[in-house]
């Protein structure tokens, strides 16, 4: 009786095999490397296959290979807040720590926002529904000022009770929360872009063309919502019309200005912008 021979392991990989594995991975989102192919592979061929898949954007995690954590998170996170604790069961082949790191990276890149709601920490796509860092700074300043006000009217033993002058309180609320309560009407993207370019040109150093991002955003705050202006700056930078530059002396920036800077690569802050020659407003 003829014995069934084990098939010889393959020592190379071709595009067809890589395509098939990619299709399989896209469907399952994660798979042990040893089970990627039905035909056995030599260690060399297996390594070549993994390298090719990594180059196509997949991630190797120990003995498994998977769709990257960030890519798996993208369709899951939407415009509504989603508890972070529930993310793991929606993803395949990812640990809590990896999810946390991917979230941190998405948040610093400005894609997502982490928002505490009660005892839960939630995540959602960054939009107007989420307070900007400038609004947050205003809110924190309001809380501090309100606490100081509360302290000033605290009744003292033997002294008559104190109250506040209504216009003072309204002025305080207007100053710190006015923008929060009445966001400026959304302008078209094109208009915002033009206004940002004009804002940059207005305060740029005439010799170097450098303009401080926080100062531009502040100057435009009356006309353009800060988030819209930040988005416009990022879009302009991606389109190669504006150069955003990382901050070198973070400790020299005061915290309110720091909060207005844009998040940059590798944890940096983008604090200077320069209109590149072809993009100057006509």
């Amino acid at each position: 009786m003829a014995t069934q021979r084990k098939p010889q392991p393959k020592d190379d990989v071709d595009n067809a095999l890589i395509d098939a594995c990619e299709q399989k991975l896209r469907a399952s989102r994660a798979c042990p490397i040893a089970r990627l192919t039905s035909v056995p592979l030599t260690p060399r061929a297996r390594q070549l296959l993994v390298d090719a898949l990594v180059r196509r954007g997949f991630e190797r995690a120990g003995t498994k290979i998977r769709v990257s954590v960030a890519e798996q998170l993208t369709p899951v996170i939407g415009a509504e807040p989603l508890p972070v604790s529930g993310l793991k069961r929606r993803l395949v082949g990812c640990t809590d720590r990896e999810i946390k790191a991917a979230l941190a990276s998405g948040v610093s890149a400005g894609t997502w926002s982490l928002v505490p709601r009660g005892k839960l920490q939630t995540v959602l796509i960054r939009s107007e529904a989420v307070l900007s860092s400038a609004d947050l700074a205003d809110l924190v300043a309001l809380a501090t000022e309100l606490s100081a006000v509360a302290k000033s009217i605290k009744p003292k033993r033997g002294a008559p009770g104190l109250s506040l002058f209504r216009p003072d309180v309204l002025a305080l609320l207007e100053r710190r929360a006015g923008r929060l309560l009445r966001p400026a009407p959304r302008e078209s993207k094109g208009e915002v872009t033009e206004q940002v370019l004009e804002g940059l040109a207005a305060i740029a150093d005439p010799q170097t063309g450098l303009a401080s991002v926080p100062h531009v955003l502040r100057a435009l705050a009356e006309k353009v919502p800060i988030d819209a202006a930040r988005d416009a700056l990022l879009d302009l930078a991606r389109a190669g019309r504006v150069e955003l530059r990382p901050e070198s002396g973070v400790e020299l920036l005061d915290p309110e200005l720091r909060a207005l800077c844009l998040p940059g690569p590798r944890g940096s802050l983008l604090s200077y912008a320069r209109v590149l020659p072809a993009a100057e407003p006509r």
């Binding site: 196509r56 954007g57 930078a237 991606r238 990382p246 940059g264 690569p265 940096s268 983008l270």
Partner: peptide
Amino acid sequence: STTAWKDWRSLPGVTPRM
């Protein structure tokens, strides 16, 4: 990887050292 490079080559604020 090809996809990661697509992001990095146009990412704003990248210095040669980064």
